[in-house]
């Protein structure tokens, strides 16, 4: 399979890149793991492709003042092995490790993944559980969007035309937190049929804080706030897991129906909560 013809650009600055997008016929190329297959299938046929790889600084993973900033062009593999990520937001590293295969993790980027917003991507579960913010740049300046507001629908985000994802910002997970990313991989594609990311903080015998992000079950990743509230209210893992996905839309395909996905989300939420609790101090 071969894509339609296009012109290829490698801007040296974000400003240049943004200018190239102005006419609306261009597409951003990061790692290409989502865009290139679409182009080869001719489901996407941009007139121009703007490759961000020459823009300095877009790959950096840094921490400052209790927050971790992950450049949009950081690859999944860089994230999974980053000492900063391992130390400060290990949940994200665990989700990165679960993505596809090593070849995909070597090329694919976090910015590309979130901008593509595949309903079955791994990151979004972790990002909503981490209450991450997506930093966007356009000709008009920068803004950030909460992860839970960012993933609007399947392949649809809160991004506006002319915006580029420049970074993901995550508050450090506290050292005492427990975390877990649980995934049921599709046997063919490797994408999560369901992925559940959990963070918990203990307080005595109870749970002071719980965050649960779910991907793959429905058209977009979501936070299971009802389950979080039950956990924080002392309801116990089983009761909390049992309400995950309540009221949310579901996806279905050849491999798994919506009903089964919702069931899997609950089972794996239960398991992820249990695993996270054993890791919490």
């Amino acid at each position: 399979m071969i894509s339609n013809a296009f012109s290829y650009h490698t801007p040296e600055t974000l400003e240049e890149a943004l200018a190239m997008l102005e006419d609306g016929g261009g597409k951003i190329l990061a790692g290409g793991m989502s865009l290139i297959p679409l182009m080869k299938l001719r489901l996407a046929s941009p007139e121009s492709v703007v490759d961000l790889r020459r823009i300095p600084g877009l790959k950096a993973i840094t921490e400052e003042g209790g927050a971790v900033r992950i450049g949009a062009m950081a690859t999944h593999h860089e994230i999974e092995i980053s000492p900063v990520i391992r130390g400060k937001c290990p949940l994200l590293g665990e989700a990165a490790s679960a993505i596809g295969d090593i070849q995909v993790r070597n090329m694919g980027t976090i910015g590309g993944s979130v901008a593509h917003a595949d309903p079955a991507a791994d990151y979004p579960a972790a990002l909503v559980a981490l209450e991450a913010r997506i930093r966007l740049r356009s000709a008009n300046g920068e803004r950030t969007v909460e992860a839970s507001e960012f993933f609007v629908d399947a392949f649809t985000t809160a991004m506006e035309a002319g915006e580029i994802v420049v970074a993901i910002e995550v508050k450090e997970e506290e050292a005492s937190e427990g975390f877990k990313y649980e995934k049921v991989a599709h046997p063919a594609s490797g994408f999560p049929v369901v992925g559940v990311a959990v963070r918990v903080k203990k307080s005595g015998a109870g749970i002071a804080m719980a965050r649960i992000g779910v991907t793959g079950m429905g058209p977009h990743a979501f936070r299971a706030r009802n389950a979080e509230a039950l956990l924080e209210g002392g309801a116990g893992a089983a009761a909390a897991a049992a309400v995950v996905g309540e009221g949310e839309e579901t996806n279905s395909d050849l491999y798994a129906s919506g009903e089964y996905r919702r069931h899997l989300a609950r089972v794996h939420a239960g398991r992820a909560i249990a695993a996270a609790l054993t890791r919490a101090l």
């Binding site: 290829y8 290409g32 793991m33 290139i36 297959p37 080869k40 492709v49 070849q103 070597n106 090329m107």
Partner: peptide
Amino acid sequence: AVKSCTMF
């Protein structure tokens, strides 16, 4: 390691 079919 990269998949050279998914790269220009």
